[in-house]
Design a protein around this nucleic acid. Structure first.
Lengths: 212, 212
DNA sequence: GGAATTGAGATAGCACTGCTATGTATAGTG
DNA sequence: CACTATACATAGCAGTGCTATCTCAATTCC
């Protein structure tokens, strides 16, 4: 058997692509290969082409998101935990809008990375804990509820990241939207509001100041 | 003064771009010019380049959406009307997913077409009527409420159109999400549910059948 | 240890992309 | 009718992703 593919090259190509995205540039074949210190062919041996490289980038980004979600520690308030995971999702996405955009740009690859499912499972688990704790109605479907919370978060994020809404929209609208949805799933209005406030307080990213 | 630009050429270029999008192809300069029966330079005299053409395409798409929203007739149930406008937004978007995607692909042009604001104003107006009719609380901010309903709709649409969620997600999740949000704004749970059902029944597009 | 083999990676050229410098002819004006 | 300013045509630019070809190094066999 002959020479084996160098995993460093593979990793460096993904690094270069993510760096380009973070820098606001469109990752393209030749500059990427140059930045990774290799030739264009490496992209084809390792990823089969640019779509494959895109998929790898998305995989890594979803891995980072899953890791961040995993590091959230469970408190005694599962509803607040649920909101905290939404905060993590939002902050991770806004930290690198170009990357966030790439995550859901299915057109380029046509395949969802496996790690994407993992991040969703975390959300479903949090809903299940909230049901088990008696906060949400027992007949509430955890998957459906997770989907709805996710879709709300995602919708605001997309509109903010495309500048259809100002940056403040996140803090202005997402908490009340969460509360409304949680109340509809059986949580008490006051308890829901309190938990949403608690969960939202895990937000760490600098938010735009009114006197900015 | 000399020769004047032919508005037909301009229109034909936009037509060709929208046709390409509808056909699932990426509109590109030379094929577009050929389809419009002109040369590549026409794109530059009329639009200043491809980004300008993209902006024109988005303008026309938003115009079509605004026209569809305008044609919705007001019933005596303003909350149902509100939901009906969400249905129109969703159906217009799903009718041509590539076009919908282009609408919010700000990266390509950096400018929001003026007609986009008009479509949002329709939504705000519907919320205001719901408040005036006593269905929603008088302290509820129409703009904030409109944003939240829009963001929910948009989030589900994006996830469906990128195939992160199945087509059925629209009918499965949007109505209960609407209801939850409307109840949070002061509408009665039963009245809200009934109005959402009424508004959602304006849906005409074929939805995937369970035995499909 | 030396030789054969097989695939990683380098080079060059393909068709395509949007864009621009240059030409040409045509419509409007004196 | 002559002039001019501009819409549109042509050709060539640098860039894109991809592939055919070549080289050469790493692994396995003897």
């Amino acid at each position: 058997m002959p020479r084996v593919a160098d995993p460093d090259v593979r990793s460096r190509l993904i690094d270069a692509a993510m760096a380009a995205l973070a820098a606001g540039e469109e990752p393209s074949l030749r500059p990427l290969a140059a930045a990774a210190g290799t030739s264009t062919m490496a992209v084809y041996t390792h990823f089969g082409g640019m779509p494959g490289l895109w998929l790898a980038v998305r995989e890594r980004a979803f891995d980072a998101l899953a890791e961040r979600l995993r590091q959230l520690d469970e408190t005694d308030d599962p509803v607040a935990d649920l909101v905290a995971s939404g905060v993590a999702y939002a902050e991770q996405s806004l930290a690198d809008p170009a990357l966030f955009h790439a995550l859901f740009e299915v057109r380029r690859t046509d395949t969802q990375p496996a790690s994407a499912v993992m991040t969703f499972a975390v959300l479903v688990g949090a809903v299940e804990r909230a049901v088990a704790a008696g906060r949400l109605a027992s007949r509430c479907d955890p998957i459906a509820t997770a989907i709805r919370l996710w879709a709300m978060t995602h919708g605001v994020l997309v509109l903010v990241s495309t500048q259809a809404l100002p940056d403040t929209a996140l803090d202005d609208h997402l908490p009340p939207m969460y509360t409304a949805q949680l109340v509809a799933q059986g949580d008490g209005p006051r308890r829901a509001a309190k938990s949403v406030r608690a969960g939202w307080s895990t937000r760490t990213t600098d938010r735009p100041s009114p006197d900015g």
